[in-house]
Amino acid sequence: MRLRFIGTRLLRGAVTLWFAVTVTFFLVRLLPGDPVLAVADPNMTEELRAKLLADFGLDQPLPVQYGEYLLQLVQGNLGMSFRQSIPVTTVLMERLPWTLILTLSAMIATVVVGIPLGVLAATKAKGWVDRLIQVAGITAQSLFVPSVGVFLLYVFGVLLGWFPIGGAVDPDATGLAASLSMLHHLVLPCLSLVFIQLGGYVLTMRATLIEALGEDYVTLAKAKGVRPASVVWKHAVRNALLPTTTIAGLQLGALVGGAVLTETIYAYPGIGRAIFEAVGQLDFPVLQGAFVLLAAAVVAANLITDVAYGFLDPRVRTS
């Protein structure tokens, strides 16, 4: 049963990834505009143009190109960067760890802060604390990531000087100092992402917990004389956590988009910054590769939450 459950989820992930790859492949090929114009100057000779087309395999019929692209992709080859003449995979793999550090730390911090806030709002439902948390949650969901980033950068980086205003690590630091410097550089970008993510978690946690607190098993626990804190945390929160796991999956796309914008502001050397640089240089293979890689990351993360959810809640597995 479990194997079949994991099997179907794996298949779904693979189909999603294939869809992402196919959509980008055809979008790039079918849009107007000559990809060679992007690499070279428009006044080049006809022979040079033909040679460039052949170098990038752009003179082949479309289905052949597509087959070749898929074949290369399976081997982890995302093509060559137009500008830097090195494989896109090399460019992006250098950047991937930074983006993973940033997004994962933001996700963990959001959960650690968001769940207690949601619990607080739900247990004080209709009071002023609850109202305040709700309004703050809606406002936080409406924030534009770069605005938050710039605000934090200005206040804590420029005015107070508590945190560095860009980069990911002090290049001169080694050993423990390097790790500390990494954390120091991580605080502001991570906080920017926490701000925009928090609203969704808090509001969902609040809504599901209020519902759970009205269930019969909660009344029973109270009647048995279980301590109120224990009723909330041991009985109700455990059940309310499940829908909140779904939010984590749903917000992945927004988290990745937020990371792209945040990295741009803080000159954080992740995939997002690579995207920003590639936009400026019209380096399409890097843009395409970055999307494929981020899509793969989202698919993998979704797979993990799905399977985790299946283990936490047996009803999901059997249905």
Binding site: V15, T16, F19, A20, V23, T24, L27, V28, L31, P32, G33, L252, G253, V256, G257, V260, L261, I275, A278, V279, L282, F284, L287, Q288, A290, F291, L294, A295, V298, V299, N302
Partner: peptide, 20 residues
């Protein structure tokens, strides 16, 4: 479902950059 599960911003960036 497939479209909803993809990270949209990087995709928009790619297409907007290509289209000018």
């Amino acid at each position: 479902d497939l479209s909803l599960s993809l990270p949209v911003l990087p995709l928009m960036i790619l297409v907007a950059a290509l289209a000018g």
